[in-house]
């Protein structure tokens, strides 16, 4: 959780506070953008560029931040969600890219029963599976797991109570298990 005093000083354009704040916020933002956009051309370069743009947008918006008792992360990830959606729309429109989630993953070279191999394989196709979740469920999993926000912070971002977030993330996980199970059995059958 970001210290609110730091945010207030950064909002007043204190350079040290701004630098510290950005350093604290940035890794989560990068993970968020990577999780949303996935690897493009095998690398996270694109996602990282978008993350950089989010940082700039954050810097621009910072002076408008007012502490109204909500966690700063709500401010940050609302900006991030908009920016990523913009970049995503633009990429889809301009490239007519097929959703990475729909691209069948290359079959694992060693489909052994070993859990590590299985989970690695699953991890690789996780972004595809996440793309098949309802939007709110996906956003919550991203913020909880990829970014690492607590359930109540996530609630502030998506406009839900912490309790509702906990219920929704349980459903999301159940759905992921179902989707993963399907794809795993598909592969086993193949």
């Amino acid at each position: 959780m970001i210290e609110s005093g730091l945010v207030v000083r950064a909002a007043r354009r204190d350079p040290d506070a701004t630098a510290t704040l950005l350093a604290q916020v940035r890794p989560g933002l990068v993970r968020y953008c990577r999780a949303r956009l996935g690897r493009i051309g095998g690398a996270y370069t694109t996602a990282d560029d978008v993350a950089q743009e989010v940082c700039l947008a954050l810097l621009r918006a910072l002076p408008t931040y007012r502490d109204v008792g909500k966690p700063f992360s709500a401010f940050v990830y609302r900006i991030a969600a908009h920016k990523v959606a913009d970049a995503h729309r633009a990429a889809v429109r301009d490239l007519a890219v097929t959703d990475t989630g729909e691209v069948p993953a290359t079959p694992s070279p060693e489909p052994g029963p070993e859990q590590h191999a299985v989970s690695t394989d699953l991890a690789r196709r996780l972004s595809g599976l996440l793309a098949r979740l309802p939007e709110t469920q996906r956003e919550i999993i991203l913020l909880r797991v990829a970014v690492g926000l607590a359930a109540d912070e996530v609630g502030e971002v998506v406009g839900m109570t912490a309790a509702a977030v906990r219920v929704t993330q349980a459903r999301a996980l159940a759905k992921l298990r179902m989707l993963a199970g399907d794809s795993l059995t598909d592969e086993a059958a193949a």
Binding site: T18, R26, P27, R31, Q115, T120, L122, L126, L173
Partner: peptide
């Protein structure tokens, strides 16, 4: 398996995060 996959995914997302550039001098 799913939890393990989520953990790997998360680790993957964290890899090689580029260093932050220095913040420009922001005048008060």
């Amino acid at each position: 398996t799913l939890a393990a996959a989520l953990k790997e995914w998360r680790t993957d997302l964290d890899e090689d995060i580029p260093e932050s550039a220095p913040i420009p001098e922001i005048p008060p």
